[in-house]
């Protein structure tokens, strides 16, 4: 390989390595010991309160669903969770948060026109996908700004 072509290729190799590190390296976040967590979620058209639940991987999570106006449900993407309750009643369920990531809470009972968009969020551990994606965005920025060799 000539000196010029090495100069041309080296920055791209470094960026490729950087992208691989961003994708594969574990995030520098200390793992917390699993514990029991309990959330009472009040549901009303078309909101959960609280709408964002943050837990650590391995936590035993108990959710109490308490509809305030009409019948509501609560399911969580990628978790076997599905609760339904009438107004004035409380439905609860306990599960282990063993899948890290960010998952949508969704109302599983038709509760009005905006029902398909009644969502919340369960965050298990740090939002790894977001941080890695932001890292890759910066790598893409660096790649776009690299000097061009002719």
């Amino acid at each position: 390989m000539t000196k010029t072509s090495l100069h041309a290729v080296l920055p791209w190799l470094v960026l490729a390595l950087l992208a691989a590190l961003v994708l594969l390296l574990p995030l520098p976040v200390a793992a917390a010991a699993p514990r029991a967590r309990r959330f009472r979620i009040e549901a009303s058209q078309f909101a959960y309160s609280p709408a964002v639940l943050r837990v650590n991987p391995g936590d035993q999570v108990t959710i109490e669903l308490a509809p305030q106006d009409v019948v509501h449900g609560l399911s969580i993407d990628s978790y076997p969770v599905d609760l339904q309750a009438d107004p004035g009643q409380v439905a609860s369920l306990t599960f282990t948060a063993d899948r890290p990531g960010v998952f949508k809470l969704r109302c599983s009972v038709t509760c009005g026109n905006m029902h398909p968009f009644m969502t919340g969020k369960l965050q298990v551990g740090p939002p790894t996908l977001l941080w890695r994606s932001l890292g890759l965005a910066l790598v893409a920025l660096a790649a776009a700004l690299l000097p061009r060799f002719k």
Binding site: Q45, F46, A47, Y48, N113, M114, F117, M118
Partner: peptide, 15 residues
């Protein structure tokens, strides 16, 4: 924000 976010108040306001 309106259709995929967790902000119920925003959905209600838009509706």
């Amino acid at each position: 924000a309106v259709f995929t976010g967790p902000w119920g108040w925003l959905k209600s306001a838009a509706y």
